[in-house]
C-alpha cells in the first residue's frame, strides 16, 4: 500500500498522518498542494489530512479547494482511486464537490476535541468495508466546523445508497444532521469523516480503533487490483513513469524538491521515530 498525503499550507496534521501510516507498515509520502498533477498509478490512496488549511479563513476548505492539485484529485477519484479526507480533509472534499453537503460551525460554536463514540452505519465505503455494520468505535475528533448539513432530497438518496458510513454515538459533539460523522460518494471510493482515524493507531495514545479503517482501505485496494471492484489495477510504482510527480523533481525522500515537503517529511520521521513500538516505523 502506498499513500499520498497532500500538504496544504496550514494543513498541520500531514506529518502525523504519514507517521501513523508508516507505523502501520504502509508506504506514505507527502505531496505539495502546488503540484498540478498526481500520477494516478503512483498511489493506492490519496489522503487529505486534518489541520487548518489557509487558517480556515473564509470557511474551512474554501481556499484549499482552489489549490493547483485539486483537479487531478478529482480525476483520480473519477477513475475510481481511493480518496479519503479526515477533518479538514473532509471539509475540503465537501467544498470541492467530491462529496455532497456542507459543514456548519458546531452547534456550541466551540472547538471540540475528545475521544468520541462513533458507530459504523454502512460498510459500503473504502474506509469501512472491513468493519461490520453497527461496530462501535472510540475515535478522536478535533474540530470547530463539524456540523454536517445536506438537503432532504440528497440525504434520502444517500441513505438509500448506503453513503452514510459513520454516525456519532452519545453524547453527540456538534449538532450534525442525523448525527452524521462520515459519508462516501455513490461508488464508495471517496470518503470523508471528522474522525481522526490516524490518531487511533498507537497503543499508547488511548485508542487503536482506527487500525481497522486502514485495513479496510487495503482490502478495497486489493479488490480493485484483482478487478473485483470494477477499476483497473494500478500499474505498479511510479519509478520510471514520466508523469510521476516524484520524478518531476530531484526528490530527497519527499515527493518533490520543495522545502515544504522536506520540512514536513523530517517532522514525520521525527514522529515515527518516537513511537515506543518503533519496530514498525520505517526511517
Amino acid at each position: 500500500m502506498k499513500y499520498g498525503v497532500i500538504v496544504f499550507p496550514g494543513g498541520s496534521a500531514a506529518p502525523e498522518c504519514v507517521a501513523a501510516l508508516r507505523h502501520l507498515g504502509h508506504d506514505a509520502e507527502l505531496i505539495w498542494h502546488g503540484n498540478p498533477a498526481v500520477d494516478p498509478d503512483a498511489y493506492d490512496c490519496l489522503l487529505l489530512p486534518p489541520g487548518h488549511s489557509y487558517g480556515d479563513y473564509l470557511r474551512p476548505g474554501a481556499i484549499a479547494k482552489l489549490s493547483p492539485i485539486m483537479p487531478s484529485v478529482q480525476e483520480y477519484a473519477a477513475g475510481g482511486g481511493v480518496v479519503v479526507g479526515f477533518g479538514n480533509g473532509f471539509q475540503i472534499l465537501l467544498e470541492a464537490g467530491l462529496l455532497p453537503g456542507a459543514m456548519l460551525i458546531n452547534r456550541s460554536c466551540k472547538y471540540v476535541c475528545r475521544l468520541q463514540r462513533i458507530a459504523v452505519e454502512s460498510t459500503k465505503s473504502a474506509l469501512t468495508c472491513g468493519f461490520q455494520a453497527a461496530d462501535a468505535l472510540l475515535l478522536p475528533i478535533a474540530h470547530r466546523w463539524g456540523n454536517y448539513w445536506v438537503d432532504d432530497g440528497t440525504l434520502e438518496r444517500m441513505e438509500h445508497n448506503g453513503q452514510i458510513v459513520l454516525v456519532y454515538g452519545d453524547p453527540e459533539p456538534n449538532g450534525s444532521l442525523r448525527g452524521i460523522a462520515g459519508i462516501c460518494n455513490e461508488s464508495g471510493n471517496v470518503v470523508g469523516t471528522m474522525a481522526h482515524f490516524h490518531r487511533a493507531v498507537f497503543e499508547d495514545l488511548g485508542s487503536t480503533d482506527g487500525v481497522g479503517a486502514f485495513a479496510s482501505i487495503a482490502s478495497w485496494v486489493e479488490k480493485v487490483r484483482t478487478g473485483r471492484n470494477g477499476r483497473s489495477a494500478p500499474s505498479g510504482r511510479s519509478e520510471g513513469s514520466g508523469r510521476s510527480v516524484r520524478d518531476g523533481h530531484s526528490a530527497r525522500g519527499g515527493c518533490c524538491s520543495c522545502r515544504g515537503c522536506d520540512v514536513a517529511e523530517s517532522a514525520a520521521n521525527m514522529i515515527a521515530a518516537t513511537s515506543v513500538e518503533g519496530g514498525n516505523a520505517r526511517d
Partner: peptide, 9 residues
C-alpha cells in the same frame, strides 16, 4: 475539550 490536545500524535 476546546484544545486540540492530540495534535502531533
Amino acid at each position: 475539550e476546546q484544545f486540540n490536545t492530540g495534535a502531533g500524535v
